[in-house]
Design a protein around this nucleic acid. Sequence first.
DNA 1: ACTGCAAATGAGAATGAAAATCAATTCCAT
DNA 2: ATGGAATTGATTTTCATTCTCATTTGCAGT
Lengths: 148, 148
Amino acid sequence: MARVAGTWEEAHERLAEYLSRHGLKKTRQRDAILDSFLEVPGHITSEDLYEQVRIDHPEIGAATVYRTLKLFVDAKIANAHHFRDGVTLYEHEGGHHDHLICLGCGAIVEFRNQIIEEQLDEVAKREGYRLTQHRLHLYGLCPDCRDA
Amino acid sequence: MARVAGTWEEAHERLAEYLSRHGLKKTRQRDAILDSFLEVPGHITSEDLYEQVRIDHPEIGAATVYRTLKLFVDAKIANAHHFRDGVTLYEHEGGHHDHLICLGCGAIVEFRNQIIEEQLDEVAKREGYRLTQHRLHLYGLCPDCRDA
DNA sequence: ACTGCAAATGAGAATGAAAATCAATTCCAT
DNA sequence: ATGGAATTGATTTTCATTCTCATTTGCAGT
């Protein structure tokens, strides 16, 4: 999966910009959490990221990780999804894509489909809606789970 | 919005069939909850349906309503969605459709788009997945909220 | 109708993710 | 250096949902 907006520097710059533009402060914790987040390859929960952050920064609290991930979403550094009910999964913001989720093993495949995107705009236009975002989740069985 | 599979009799029959086919029991509570559910026009949470059920059947517990709605999903009488995180919304099973949700007022428009459906199958096939279901949620502002 | 027993119920406790509190700390413009 | 607003972390709270378990109930087989 190609990283569309993915360097360390870019993410940190995006954070810095968002913070200053909103009168918020650059803190040690936010930087540390961003570093840990950037090391995650796929999707992660706040809780799991907290575990991750803990390794290098045992003093950082869980609440801060929860808060900070929401901040990252606002700063367009991360995206939030809820594939299964009750848990929020975060991923790097890296250009739009949708998800195909295996109900057997939980594997997640990302994809893009231009025709679908066009149709979505079409639908929204027809209803007079101004579209902000969308979530398209396909659920099924991956090749391995299907044959097992 | 047309009811595709929507009569009272059909729903009750579907329930009866599901129950007997799975060695489960037909109970006063399940019938009562189904009756209340069928009176709901759009989407409802377990909690709100519990309030509804309570009116005529104060003896029915919340846990039973939660359990029963999950049963309805299995029996293909209801569908579950989680538009906002942390709450499950149920709607009548009435043929597939997707949702356009207004972030301003919470209005929900249902739609169908054949081209999108075809593309979904295409995507799944390309990845070797056997598709079970999907969820497509468009978020934006409805005409009223957009201009306000 | 009677019995046995698994399924179902209801009240309340437990869970778990996320949000809220709040006193103490830390950024940062001046 | 200073003041005040933003931030933090420990903790509590919230709130939807699930679990527990003693009791009840539907129902298949007598």
